[in-house]
């Protein structure tokens, strides 16, 4: 191919990509940023200002929910990692042949159902008239109906459930490629379980750990259904406030500001996570 044809084909391939990234990602987000700095003075006049961001810091309800959402998302991510790691280890290193494939497939099954269905399943189990409550009563361990839904523990159970797959898959992928000689060498050199885990296995699995944690954190931070449906009166989630501003109150300026804040929070934490573990987004995601 001569260089003219090469240039033409490059531009032909680049155009759809640029249209997608510019029109669906970059421009809308810049516009959201712009709107978040606009203050509505009357129904058709706008001025620049920081009013929305001031509201966020002065109304304790906003920033409390913001901090709560961030902290609970981090906790959920960590818990998901703890729960998923032994499972991923078993699938990648201990199970053989058919069992291996079947176990891996079993991890995928819940995710053929949507988040709404999964949450609904948990509601049927945990609520006052739910199965756990009925079973407890049948066993004589409870005198009356027990409400297990509508609290933070229920929300975390649901969130961990939603995130598990996205933790197990990258962990299995990285652990799968590990050379067992490394682990044996660790034991030969006098390491016990804890030191081998800390010095050999975890460093090796780091790309998988980081990629799983980033995805789970993003999903948890941005989740809406699980906290709304399983949380109680006091377990507000930040996405809910964004939703309220846009859909219920038609206050786009405030909603945009809250959206920008959520985006900033998630970007900072993802960036910190990559930075602290020395990974790059390309290696972890691509």
């Amino acid at each position: 191919m001569n260089s003219g044809a090469a240039r033409l084909s490059l531009w032909l391939l680049l155009t759809p990509f640029l249209l997608w990234i510019v029109l669906l990602v970059l421009v809308p987000h810049l516009q959201m940023l712009r709107v978040s700095f606009q203050v509505r003075e009357s129904w058709d006049t706008l001025a620049w200002g920081l009013e929305q961001y001031q509201n966020f810091f002065t109304e304790s309800y906003y920033w409390r929910t913001f901090v709560r959402t961030g902290v609970m998302s981090l906790f959920t991510t960590f818990l998901t990692l703890l729960i998923a790691f032994p499972i991923a280890w078993y699938i990648a290193r201990l199970a053989r042949g058919r069992a291996r494939g079947l176990l891996f497939l079993a991890c995928l099954i819940p995710f053929w159902a949507s988040e709404l269905v999964r949450t609904y399943g948990w509601m049927i189990l945990l609520r006052e008239s739910g199965l756990f409550s009925s079973w407890l009563q049948a066993l004589g361990w409870a005198d009356g109906p027990v409400e297990m839904l509508y609290n933070d523990v229920a929300v975390i159970i649901g969130l961990v459930y939603n995130g598990l797959l996205f933790m197990v898959v990258p962990l299995v992928t990285t652990l799968d490629g590990m050379d067992e000689n490394l682990v044996e060498a660790g034991y030969d050199l006098g390491g016990n379980h804890a030191t081998v885990l800390r010095e050999v296995v975890v460093p090796w699995a780091m790309p998988g750990i980081v990629s799983g944690c980033i995805v789970v954190f993003m999903l948890t931070l941005g989740s809406y259904l699980t906290p709304i449906l399983m949380g109680g009166k006091d377990s507000a989630w930040f996405t809910q406030q964004i939703f309220t501003q846009f859909i219920t109150r038609f206050n786009w300026e405030q909603g945009a500001a809250l959206g920008v804040l959520l985006l900033v929070l998630s970007s900072i934490i993802v960036w910190l996570g990559l930075r602290l573990t020395g990974q790059s987004l390309r290696k972890v995601m691509g």
Partner: peptide, 29 residues
């Protein structure tokens, strides 16, 4: 290319709600 590849990955690290909100603000606005 490296920069554009990172841009390509960007939607994965933006919460879904924000993707929706930004498109609503821009196009509906």
């Amino acid at each position: 290319k490296e920069f554009l590849y990172l841009l390509m990955l960007l939607p994965l690290v933006i919460p879904g709600v924000i993707l929706g909100v930004s498109i609503l603000v821009f196009y509906s606005g």
